[in-house]
């Protein structure tokens, strides 16, 4: 198991946002967590990437307890977080953003990897010297994903990559995520767009008001009546 979460409890002051969360992500797989607004999806990712300290429970990554590590240490250990709302550095160029993604790397292959992502996303190469703040939403999402991959993570956390994007662009972004997964990156995808997420995932968890109410392999979830009714609008 690459990532194991055991009985995680996360609170905002007095309010319990997540209670007793346990889940696992296997190496090489795409695990998705679906749930509606306010279920606590982003909170869980914040806890995983060290931005919000859990009240109790354990997060084990690659055999190491990372529950109390700081956000930058966690990046060094190999978890990269592609945040909700993209959060590219608006005043730096596309190229500089990608180099920021490789901040923790000390090898000399950085430029080579950037070229690789330029091949994947030709639109980013066209805009390599443009300020990232001037890109369209879809382009920013591509940039955010490539930036997160630039640290060569063992695990990529994706938070709502479809947020605020036009349906056609969403299709494209999910195609990209699928490709990244096929390349061998382990991905933990948090998404409101349940249908899209389950289509490309291996395994899915369902989060509802701070609790995991079910998990199964993705195909089974896609075909389950409960899930269809609640999340797929069928």
């Amino acid at each position: 198991m690459l990532l194991e979460v055991e009985n995680l409890v996360v609170k905002y002051g007095e309010i319990t946002a997540l209670s007793n969360i346990s889940l696992q992500a296997e190496e090489g797989q795409l695990t998705t967590l679906i749930g509606s607004n306010g279920a606590g999806k982003t909170t869980l990712l914040k806890a995983l990437s060290g931005l919000h300290k859990p009240a109790s429970g354990k997060i084990i990554f690659d055999g190491k307890d990372i529950t109390n590590c700081s956000a930058d240490q966690i990046v060094h250990l190999g978890i990269s977080h592609c945040p909700e709302g993209r959060r590219v550095f608006p005043r730096q160029t596309v190229h500089e953003n990608l180099r920021m993604g490789a901040f923790v790397r000390k090898d000399k292959e950085v430029e080579k990897d950037i070229e690789k992502y330029y091949r994947w996303f030709p639109r980013l190469e066209e805009r390599r010297n443009q300020k990232a703040g001037l890109l369209s939403g879809g382009e920013q999402q591509m940039l955010a994903i490539s930036r997160a991959l630039m640290s060569k993570p063992k695990l990529l956390l994706l938070d709502e990559p479809s947020m605020g994007l036009a349906p056609l662009v969403v299709e494209e972004v999910f195609k990209i995520i699928d490709e990244v997964h096929q390349e061998g990156t382990t991905i933990f995808l948090v998404e409101q767009n349940a249908r899209q997420a389950l289509k490309i995932a291996d395994k899915g968890y369902i989060l509802e008001v701070g609790e995991i109410i079910g998990h199964d392999n993705a195909e089974a979830l896609l075909n389950s009546d409960d899930v269809k009714k609640a999340y797929l609008g069928a």
């Binding site: 956000a71 959060r87 550095f89 608006p90 005043r91 993604g101 923790v104």
Partner: peptide, 24 residues
């Protein structure tokens, strides 16, 4: 330098900077 870009990153978005592995 790398430092200068890190300063600018944490100025523009300290959360995204910490996701990039910068100890803000």
């Amino acid at each position: 330098s790398k430092y200068g870009r890190a300063y600018m990153a944490l100025r523009d978005d300290s959360i995204a900077a910490s996701y990039a592995g910068i100890d803000v």
